[in-house]
Structure formats: structure tokens, C-alpha cells
């Protein structure tokens, strides 16, 4: 592809057909996650529609697969920035080859690893530690008020939002290429993380307040002493343990605590 054709195509962005194929496959990036190389198989599967648009050559296909069969891991919601950038890099490589030049194989590795890691860190902060706990508390709050449709509606809004983000970031990554570094430096990521975390804190407080109001209102037959002991033990235990136990373990810890409380009530003749 000549330089002019390439720059014209860049300004138009990815073709709809290729973009759709990349987008659909990118949704299953984590499907073949493995302990050794994490998302490598997923990334290669996403990149194959692009490889199929090129003139087929056995040797080039093998080298292409080798480039993407190495370790890769990033955040699934932001992965399409990297994928878009990688498609652009592959186009550059193909254009250079057509003109008799070569692009170093290390370029792809460097781009994929450095940007993959940066987006992984950003995505973990924003989605896993920011939005997800906030969303969990928001749906708990709605659940405490018995709003089942609102629970599903809120999750639906997130689902549509993240799909739009994935769709748009594919083009953004393609247009920017190496300039994706500028996207990473943008202040709105850190502002977003801070907002998500604070929202999570407020929603956690609101869930706690609603729960307290519900179990302490007149007519709820819960023994006051037991209730307050249970709440304080529940709130204090994770801080005393100084370890973040998985929820499944916490259920067993709670059962042990409840058995102890039950035994204490039984012994005291309550």
C-alpha cells in the first residue's frame, strides 16, 4: 500500500466490516485465558480478521502468529485501544514490506507490552477497584429497597456503556497508533478513578445506613445486643484480620461467629 493510500485510509478509520469483526472477537479476549501467557491466544484470535485481509503467504502467517503468541495481558474494557494500535502497526509493517523496507519485530512487542501493561494498570484502578465496587454497592442499595428492575437496569446501562467504549476505542487506537501514550497521560483517567472511588465510598456508607435503618426500625424482632454485636464484629473483623479474605471465606467466618454467638445465648439461657 502506498503512503498516500495509507494516510487516506487512516483518516477514514477502520472499514466497518473489519471493525465489526475485530470488535466481536475482542469481546472474547479473555475466553482462552491461561496461567502461562494469559490473553495471548485471545489477542491472536482478535487479530486474525486483519491477517485475512492481506495477501496470504505461509511464511508471513507463521511470523504473524509468532508475534502474537507471546505473553499478553491487559484490562478487557480498555484492550481495544491496544488492539486498534496493533492493527495500525501491522498496516505500517505491510506497507514497509511492500516498499522493500522492514519494520523491526521488536516494535510490535514493545508497543503491545508497554501499552498493554499501562492500560491494564489503568483499567484495574478504574474498573475493578473503582466502578465495580461502586456498582456492587449501588445495586445492593437498590436491592435493599426491593427495586429489582432498577438493579437489572443499572447493570444494563453499564453493559451498554462498556460496549460503546470498546467500539469507539478500537478506532481511537487505530487513528493514534504510537500517540496512544498521549491518551494515557490525559488527566481525565485519574479524575475518573477518584470519582469512582469516592462514589463507591459514599454508596458503601449509604448501603450501611439503609441496612441499619431497616434492621433497627420498630417491629423487627432482632435482639438489640446481638444485632449491634453482629454489626460491630462484621465491620471490625476484616480490619482486625488485616487480610482481605475472599467472600466465600467470609461466609464461613460469619458462620463460626454466628455459632459462637448462638452458643453464648444458649449458655446464658436466652
Amino acid at each position: 500500500m502506498s503512503g498516500d493510500k495509507l494516510s487516506t485510509r487512516r483518516s477514514r478509520g477502520l472499514t466497518f466490516k473489519l471493525k465489526l469483526a475485530l470488535f466481536v472477537r475482542s469481546l472474547s479476549l479473555q475466553a482462552s485465558w491461561n496461567h502461562e501467557r494469559m490473553q495471548n491466544l485471545g489477542l491472536l484470535t482478535v487479530m486474525l480478521p486483519w491477517a485475512r485481509t492481506q495477501r496470504r503467504n505461509l511464511n508471513q502467517d507463521r511470523v504473524f502468529c509468532r508475534r502474537y503468541y507471546e505473553f499478553f495481558n491487559t484490562n478487557p474494557y480498555l484492550a481495544n485501544f491496544v488492539i486498534g494500535g496493533l492493527v495500525r502497526l501491522e498496516e505500517d509493517r505491510a506497507a514497509a514490506r511492500d516498499n522493500g523496507a522492514t519494520l523491526s519485530p521488536g516494535t510490535t512487542t514493545m508497543f503491545r507490552d508497554s501499552l498493554g501493561r499501562a492500560f491494564a494498570s489503568l483499567g484495574d484502578q478504574l474498573f475493578w477497584l473503582g466502578i465495580r465496587p461502586a456498582m456492587a454497592m449501588a445495586i445492593c442499595l437498590l436491592g435493599l429497597h426491593g427495586q429489582m428492575l432498577a438493579v437489572l437496569g443499572l447493570v444494563g446501562i453499564f453493559a451498554v456503556g462498556q460496549l460503546i467504549l470498546r467500539w469507539r476505542s478500537l478506532d481511537r487506537g487505530y487513528r493514534l497508533g504510537f500517540d496512544l501514550v498521549d491518551v494515557l497521560q490525559h488527566r481525565h483517567w485519574h479524575r475518573g478513578i477518584a470519582i469512582a472511588e469516592r462514589s463507591g465510598m459514599v454508596l458503601t456508607g449509604m448501603t450501611a445506613g439503609t441496612y441499619l435503618a431497616m434492621v433497627t426500625r420498630p417491629g423487627v424482632p432482632v435482639h438489640d445486643g446481638l444485632l449491634w454485636f453482629g454489626i460491630l464484629a462484621g465491620l471490625g473483623l476484616p480490619m482486625i484480620l488485616r487480610r482481605r479474605l475472599p467472600g466465600e471465606m467470609l461466609i464461613l467466618v460469619a458462620l463460626g461467629l454466628a455459632l459462637l454467638l448462638g452458643f453464648a445465648v444458649f449458655v446464658s439461657g436466652g
Binding site: Y211, A233, G234, L235, P238, L250, L257, G262
Partner: peptide, 16 residues
């Protein structure tokens, strides 16, 4: 008592 203890533990875990 379990469903009464769990919200406290879950919220305590998040606060931590």
C-alpha cells in the same frame, strides 16, 4: 444470625 452478620462483614471488607 448469618444474613445479619454478612452485610457488616461485606461492608467492613470494602471499607478496609
Amino acid at each position: 444470625m448469618l444474613p445479619l452478620l454478612l452485610p457488616g462483614l461485606g461492608i467492613g471488607n470494602l471499607i478496609d
